[in-house]
Nucleic acid binder design. Structure first.
Lengths: 225, 225
DNA sequence: TTCTTGTCACCTAGGTGTTAATAT
DNA sequence: ATATTAACACCTAGGTGACAAGAA
């Protein structure tokens, strides 16, 4: 069995409608997909991998109303042609069950890209489409005719709270704020600590940028449906 | 067969008498021990590991002369009691021959410590002693009674140019200068680029520190024997 | 006197959202 | 109008030797 780590954080994002940035160079997921694993044969070899399947066959589109004070998702038509269905093997694969079970397994090397010609082995997704991450455990069968048993030698785990919309720029400002609040690498955009003010901004950038940005996204903006 | 990477750099250090810093928390080696491997069975599994053996049974001692303007090594007596002879497995172990051979194998996660009670799995060495790094390739024998064949299932490679003295602080200033010149992480101590001056130094630090330091180590200082 | 330790400025390496410019 | 891209300031994380203070 498998237990999703940071479930509370995933739930918080999922409630708002999780968005994950995709870039040409590849972008990590946040939150990172991490699991604790139980019940493996400690001495057997396993491969751990992830893939991403479309949640529906729709393409989404962002509509802003009330002079940018709120926004919501609309269906914009049928999904774009499916991308190459790549998988991401956990870099420690293959490893013994004992190894996998003795600590949290983290997919922090996994990167998402919108570049259909990517040759870095990243996961290719269509922007403005919704995806469901899946986690697979493959038992490495030592038998010579192991191909025959492929069906029974793997198990798939799906956590619906890890669904997300792939985007090239955040659409829901509350998602942005939650990412800034919870991702250590975005600490530079937090404005909760007045001791850090005034900070250096680039020439041309507005002072009090963060406060301004916050005001564009009142609490009343509709959550993701 | 195995080919040592950066051999020219290793030779340069070896000529001066390579020194490697050991710390309580663990310090990486520089140069890093890296090899290219040839002639493995691409489909077989191998473990790659390193260990360190004393070059002699001597303890060394630094003697400074001419008011710090030069220094040399003297034998200071018998070696201290041998440290726990730890080994460092390359973190990708085990892996297929094909995997090992398709790129340079780098032991950049290996760290040296002088802490006899270290529980981070680092290599424990005695300061002021000389060591010879060794590289071992272990064939993972699929046979059930593989223990019987342990003798013939591994091969050891020794590169004498990678010998070094473990130290807690550099003794030979030419080693320091070569490290600064060749290790990217020490770029902050290079003074070859006058455009970077003046740099910020800590309160109390001398201005022109680097130039001062250089002057303490004239080219005439004796090389390591 | 020699050796060791802890802290520091200064780097490398790379993960963030922001922003302005561009593309669709 | 909406979506994408590239450059950027600002972080995390951690590898350097210098230095001062302490230990042997």
């Amino acid at each position: 069995s498998v237990q999703l780590e940071m479930k509370a954080l995933w739930d918080e994002f999922n409630q708002l409608g999780t968005e994950m940035i995709v870039t040409k160079a590849g972008r990590r997921m946040f939150p990172t997909f991490q699991v604790k694993i139980f019940g493996m044969d400690p001495m057997a070899d396993y491969m751990l991998l992830m893939d991403f399947v479309p949640v529906d066959d729709k393409r989404y589109r962002q509509v802003r109303r009330y002079a940018f004070h709120s926004s919501s998702w609309l269906v914009a038509g049928k999904a774009d042609p499916a991308t190459p269905g790549r998988v991401h093997y956990h870099p420690d694969s293959p490893a013994k069950g004992a190894q996998w079970m003795k600590q949290i397994v983290s997919f922090d090397k996994l990167k998402l890209t919108n570049n259909l010609l990517d040759d870095n082995g990243h996961i290719i997704l269509n922007s403005m489409h919704r995806y469901q991450p899946r986690f697979h455990v493959v038992y490495v069968d030592p038998r010579k005719d192991s191909e025959k048993y492929a069906e029974e030698n793997f198990k798939t785990f799906v956590f619906e709270e890890t669904r997300f919309t792939a985007v090239t720029a955040y659409q829901n400002h509350r998602i942005t704020q939650l990412k800034i609040a919870s991702n250590p690498f975005a600490k530079g955009f937090r404005d909760c600590d007045p001791e850090d003010w005034p900070r250096n901004h680039r020439p041309g950038a507005l002072p009090l940028m963060s406060a301004f940005a916050r005001s564009r996204n009142p609490v009343s903006s509709p959550a993701h449906q």
